[in-house]
């Protein structure tokens, strides 16, 4: 019994250690003081007001949102198609592709960022939104493939066969039967990929310089050089944003269409 209590206390301490940084940031964003002041001595919305007047931060936010959105817009159909092909198809190289699609996910972004820096300088898209979008399609794709593939795997193939036996061609069967019954899984995949891409730092550090600063890069620079009081606001904003999106993704992942 004593062992178990000890284990429990230890586990809870570790859990608090994992979670604390997130919860420390939120109250800080309401602090009235400049600089780090935790726990805050007085609270105000001053930092929030300042944030909405800070064009640099707003620009970075806008760049991140734009780049992530377009990357996911392209990665979603690409990844969904790939997942469908991997789950349903029986073709040469399927097993290989199954593992290959995970590779970008475990591969150090440091190396990928370096390779892109090298490539983009040569083809002239260094420090551009296009460059970021192209990179983030690769980053987001594995997540979309994995999550939608799980959904397709649990999807009853006889529904598709039935639709086709009733006269629907492959496209009709996909859009009238498969898609209406799996869209929530696809949405979950897209949202997860969006969160990942939106938070991505290392690749952006490599392939951008001045023109296109994403929010994570701006945050990193602010932490590296001197701590901007607005950082807490941005962080709070991002935490809430991520949690809402993650909650949404979890919700979609559980939707069953009956």
């Amino acid at each position: 019994m004593g062992q178990k209590v000890f284990l429990g206390i230890l586990a809870i301490l570790i859990l608090l250690f994992i979670a604390s940084p997130v919860f420390v940031v939120l109250p800080l964003s309401f602090s009235d003081a400049r600089g780090i002041d935790f726990p805050p001595e007085s609270y105000s919305l001053r930092r929030f007001r300042d944030f909405f007047g800070a064009t640099e931060w707003l620009n970075a936010l806008w760049t991140s949102a734009k780049v992530s959105f377009f990357a996911i817009l392209i990665a979603t159909p690409l990844g969904t198609g790939m997942a469908l092909g991997l789950v349903r198809g029986k073709f040469f190289g399927r097993k290989l592709l199954n593992s290959f699609v995970i590779l970008p996910l475990v591969f150090p972004t440091l190396i990928y960022g370096l390779a892109l820096l090298f490539l983009y300088r040569r083809i002239g898209i260094y420090d551009s939104e296009l460059g970021l979008v192209l990179a983030y399609i690769v980053v987001g794709l594995p997540f979309i493939v994995l999550i939608t593939a799980a959904r397709f795997r649990s999807f009853d193939e006889s529904l598709e066969l039935t639709a086709m036996s009733l006269g629907a061609n492959w496209w009709q069967s996909f859009f009238k039967v498969t898609l209406p019954l799996t869209w929530s899984g696809i949405a979950a995949g897209a949202i997860v990929a969006f969160i990942i891409v939106f938070d991505e730092l290392i690749i952006a550090l490599f392939i951008t310089r001045i023109q296109e600063v994403t929010l994570p890069v701006k945050m990193f620079n602010s932490l590296d050089l001197d701590v901007d009081p607005l950082l807490a606001v941005v962080a709070s904003f991002l935490i809430i944003n991520s949690l809402i999106l993650a909650g949404l993704a979890a919700l979609f992942a559980r939707v069953r269409h009956e």
Binding site: S158, T162, M164, S165, L166, G167, A168, V177, P180
Partner: peptide
Amino acid sequence: VPIHKRNIGMVFQNYALFPH
């Protein structure tokens, strides 16, 4: 001939009714 041009009715054991 592809499935959708065969005009064959099919009833599966699980019925495969479109739930939506």
